Amino acid sequence: MDDLYIKKVLNGDTEGFRYFITNYKDLAFTVAISVVKDEFWAEEVVQESFIKVFKNLKSFKRRSSFKTWFYRIVINEAFQRIRNEKKEHFYTDNFFDQEPTEENFAGLSAEEQIVLVQESLKRLSPKESLVLRLFYLEEQDTKTVSEETGWSESNIRVILHRGRKNMLAIVQQLMQNEFKTT
């Protein structure tokens, strides 16, 4: 379906671009928020990404799927936004041998678990947050994540490993500080 709308847009049907906005805006926002950690910035990244895609659609070589090409643009825009704003991202470098388990969420409601996961993702480094979201929440394999980010599969596996460990540390810290039961 993407190819049909790519042809329409390239043939001058600018209204055909709505298809891409409708179908990719939510996923683009999810990717952007993983990196920039701010809703306003994420919205700007998505908007800039769509503008870039529209202007450069004729340069799309079809070596990968449109989705992969678009994700890479969103990811690059998000990291560029961080570099431009020189925003500091605070995250932990602590590594634990323990893997996350359901026991870490014992006693929490489903809503509290969601809040805990979302807050943890905000506190991770942009790369870790992005890779964890793509791998676990978007259920993509390491090969697909590698294609979309431009990073090697071995690098993706390292980022996943570190991200899980750092997320566990953050979850434990949040539970001690914010979700303490008396």
Rank of each mutant, 00 (worst) to 15 (best):
K52E: 14
V46T: 02
S49G: 14
I21W: 07
Q47Y: 06
S59M: 12
N56D: 10
V9N: 07
S65E: 11
T30I: 11
F20Y: 09
S34C: 12
K61W: 06
D13F: 04
E15Y: 09
N23Q: 13
S65Y: 09
K58L: 05
Q47S: 15
K67F: 12
R72P: 00
N23T: 13
K58V: 07
E48C: 09
E39F: 00
K55W: 04
I6P: 00
F17V: 11
F20M: 05
T14W: 08
K37H: 15
N56H: 00
I33T: 03
D26L: 11
S65G: 11
I75P: 08
I73K: 13
E48P: 06
E39S: 15
N56M: 00
I33K: 07
Y19M: 09
V35Q: 08
K7V: 03
A42I: 13
D38G: 11
V9F: 07
D38F: 14
F17L: 08
S34A: 15
Y19A: 06
E48R: 15
T30K: 15
V45C: 11
N11I: 02
D38V: 13
T30L: 05
I51K: 12
K67W: 02
D38P: 07
R18Q: 10
T68H: 04
G16D: 06
K7W: 02
G16S: 15
V31M: 14
L27G: 05
S34W: 11
F17E: 02
A28H: 04
F70D: 03
T68R: 04
N11W: 04
F54N: 07
D13Q: 12
V46Q: 00
Y19P: 06
F50R: 10
L10C: 09
K7A: 08
F66H: 11
L27T: 11
V53W: 10
L57R: 06
S34T: 13
N23C: 08
T14S: 14
K25L: 07
K61L: 02
L10D: 05
T30Y: 01
K25S: 15
T22G: 05
I51E: 08
K55N: 13
I6M: 05
F54A: 09
F60Q: 10
N11D: 07
I21G: 04
I51R: 06
A42M: 13
V35T: 04
T68S: 08
T14I: 13
K8Q: 12
S64T: 15
V45W: 08
V31R: 14
E39P: 02
D26M: 05
K52R: 14
S65D: 02
F60A: 03
K37G: 14
A28R: 11
F17K: 08
Q47P: 01
F66E: 05
K8Y: 13
I75R: 09
V9T: 04
V36N: 00
W41C: 00
K61C: 01
V45M: 12
R72I: 03
A32V: 10
F50Q: 10
I75F: 12
V53H: 05
D13I: 09
F20C: 09
A42E: 13
V53Q: 08
N23R: 14
S34L: 12
V74W: 01
Y71L: 12
Y71C: 15
F29S: 07
V35I: 15
K58A: 13
Y71I: 01
